[in-house]
Amino acid sequence: MPARTIDSVLLPTDGSDGALAGAKYGLDLAAAVGADVHILSVADTSELEGISSLLETDMDERRAAIETEAEAAVEAVATMVEERNPELEVTTTTERGTPFRVIDRYADASGIDVIAMGTKGLTGLERVVLGSVTENVLRTVDVPVLAVPPEAGDSSLTRETVENILLPTDGSDGAAVAVDWGISLAIAFDAMLHAVTSVDTSRYMGDPHLDPGAILAELEAVGEEALEAVRRRARDEGVSVTGSVAKGPAARVIADYAEDNESDLIVMGTHGRSGFERQFLGSVTENVVRTVRTPVVCVPMGTRRGDDNSH
């Protein structure tokens, strides 16, 4: 991969179906790029601390049960690795603590390049919010997160199955960081890169002082400039690329494009840091992750690993 390497993939797990789905896709990614695999489960005993009625012996038993579950969750993913890709190097770990904090700390200490996690599924006709652990990880870590929705199903990430990678862009710094990763993943999977940008004039409607036609033309020009930057980068790396400007709200444009063009993977940027605290996920990225059926690689602006082939 030209500017971004993936040497290690972290698979956090709690034993749930969502976690196993995320682990499966993360394992596919690791196999495709020859990365080491780290499997981590966090025994979260914080809820027990607030139960004053528990005797110390009961508390110890509950803690032990939670830790046993964490160990079983790690073992289940380790077995998956052994069955699917036994040639990969695997590190297994269980730790105590708050899951998203432990995941962030582990990723930093172990030089993790990508974290793969499942998101929550549907409740009735309506998607519930992202799983709290996944959402907090997306908000805090400085490495890309492969977010896998349950609707991704039994597909996989291989050179045979990944043909189209969708790369939304708006020319911003956050989008520019994602471009590097999108191109690198297109190389890894020998896939076509689809760059798309949206033109949304709705926020300007109703202002009598603005010319809708002029606004549209200006936004389209900005969008074309962003697309051309992606085209140049992709062609320099020998990646097949196509680009298009679409009209409408960005999240809807991305979701529709992914569906209509059978995108196998979406790569897009998230917000960076504001002061010492990570901002809430960019509303576009957040909405895309919550609504699409396609795995999404969420790339933070502050990505600290995989730069220039070094750690």
Rank of each mutant, 00 (worst) to 15 (best):
D7R: 12
V9W: 04
T13S: 03
D14Y: 07
G15L: 07
S16H: 02
A23G: 05
V42P: 05
I51H: 05
I51A: 13
D58A: 15
D58N: 14
D60Q: 10
A64V: 04
I66V: 14
A70L: 07
A72T: 14
A72C: 06
V74D: 04
E83K: 02
N85R: 11
N85C: 11
R96W: 08
R96V: 10
G97M: 01
V102F: 01
A109W: 02
A116R: 01
G118Q: 06
T119G: 03
E126D: 13
V128A: 14
V133N: 11
N136C: 04
V137E: 06
V141S: 06
D142C: 06
P144N: 05
A147G: 05
S156P: 02
L157C: 05
T161A: 13
E163D: 15
T169D: 09
D173K: 13
A175V: 02
V179K: 00
I187F: 02
A188G: 06
A191E: 06
A195G: 12
G206Y: 04
E218S: 15
V230C: 10
D236K: 12
D236N: 14
E237H: 06
G243Q: 09
S244T: 15
G248P: 13
I254R: 02
I254K: 03
D256Q: 11
A258F: 03
E262H: 11
L265W: 04
T270P: 07
G272V: 03
G272T: 05
F276P: 03
R278S: 15
R293H: 15
T294E: 13
V296R: 00
V296S: 10
V297D: 06
V299P: 05
T303S: 12
R305Q: 12
R305C: 03
G306H: 05
